[in-house]
Simulated assay, not measured.
Amino acid sequence: MTRSYNFLLFDGFSNLCLANMVEPLRAANTLAGQDLYAWQFYSPDGAPVQSSSGLQVAPHGAMGFESGDALVVMPSYGYLEHSVPDTHRALRRAATRHPKLAGLDTGSWLLAHAGLLEGHRATIHWDELSRFEEAFPDVEVVQERYVIDRNRITCSGALAVYDLATALILADHGPLLSMEVAHLLMNRSEPSAASPQMKSEDRLVNRVLAVMQSTLDAPVLIKDIARRLGCSQKKIETRVLAELGITPQALYRRLRLNLARKLAVETQQSVAEIASRCGYENPSAMTRAFRAQFGQTPTAYRSGS
């Protein structure tokens, strides 16, 4: 099922805030090979809006009677000028058509002024915390990077928005896709790394991933990985399943097929060459596995058909 996000942008919104929300969703779609998320952009009156750095965005229209899974409110700079009765009424109307409401950066202020955060925990850009707490005593104000309290989501600033987006992907689709998104966007790679590695929070799982990613062209048995790491195969199976919700064998296969997809899109290598680089002796076997994973053959995926 596709989750739909409607972004309500105001003049002065933050480019970085918007990108850090949308790009992880886009990456999740790319990695999953399907539209897990969809989004559209709106402004209060349908006119183009200009970000704090001068980028102009032509919205899909004015926020009227659109519905979706979540409304994301983004004023950023100049939010007090946007906190007017017309805005509050529009947000209250939108709240009836969106199960979840999110205020990014200073969007929390507009939601609170519209009476949509009463009885909820919420945060805001930390420069505004004291003012926010004084203005809205019915809101439990906390100094956190982001807060998800039932059907209300608030976030403190642009960099924290990335953490929020990956947390939402984690909640919707599990830890493996969230980790793959972080890897694709290079959030956890070392700055000097020539070939960034996908990483987990679990130390043993992280070591297993390192071995797997260094042997994609010549896969080894899980029992041999266990021997190399000085632990039992059962321990690896238990920890990988607990951390990523997938067996080590399936994880290894997914890593190899992710590489195959990357090579299909970014190179002109033949299917046989791709298969060899991904540890498949038989190109037909790789093609079958690729189609089972992504719904298309490597050739069709490359052509975008």
Rank of each mutant, 00 (worst) to 15 (best):
L184C: 04
P99W: 07
I246E: 02
C278G: 04
V220Q: 12
G115S: 15
L255N: 05
Q143I: 00
P99L: 08
D202L: 12
R3W: 07
T154M: 05
W109E: 04
S189H: 08
K234Q: 15
E281K: 15
P59I: 06
A264T: 10
D35V: 00
P44S: 09
A260G: 05
A210K: 08
S189F: 03
T166F: 03
D163R: 08
H88I: 10
A28I: 06
G157Y: 02
I274D: 01
L8W: 14
S53R: 11
V49E: 03
F290W: 06
W109A: 03
A218M: 03
G174E: 03
D217S: 14
T297V: 09
M63V: 11
R92H: 10
F136Q: 05
G103I: 07
M63L: 15
C155H: 00
D163L: 11
P48Q: 04
A260K: 01
L111T: 08
N151A: 12
L204G: 05
E190N: 13
A112V: 13
P99F: 09
P137C: 05
N282E: 11
D163S: 12
N151I: 13
D202C: 11
A292W: 14
N187W: 10
H60T: 00
F65T: 14
Q56A: 13
K199F: 00
P24S: 06
G174C: 03
L170A: 08
C17E: 15
M186A: 14
T166A: 03
H113E: 15
R152W: 06
Q268R: 14
V57W: 06
K223F: 09
D86A: 14
T123D: 07
L244K: 04
E243Q: 13
T238Q: 15
D202K: 11
L244C: 06
R150H: 14
S52V: 11
L80E: 12
V271P: 01
Q269R: 13
W126H: 14
A300N: 11
Y162E: 00
S156C: 10
A95V: 12
A160F: 09
R26D: 07
P59K: 05
A167H: 11
A27G: 04
V161K: 01
S303Y: 00
S43R: 10
L71Q: 02
E144A: 08
T154P: 11
L91E: 02
L91I: 12
I148E: 10
K234W: 15
A95K: 09
A70H: 10
L164K: 01
Y162K: 02
D138T: 15
S303C: 00
D105T: 09
V205Y: 13
S276P: 02
L159V: 14
G12I: 07
L251D: 07
G107T: 08
A160H: 10
N29K: 02
Y280V: 00
T247S: 12
T247I: 08
Q34C: 09
T123L: 03
L71T: 04
F290A: 01
G304M: 11
V240G: 01
P248Q: 07
G61N: 05
E81A: 06
A158K: 06
H125G: 03
A32D: 05
L36V: 07
A27H: 01
F65D: 14
T287F: 05
Y252D: 07
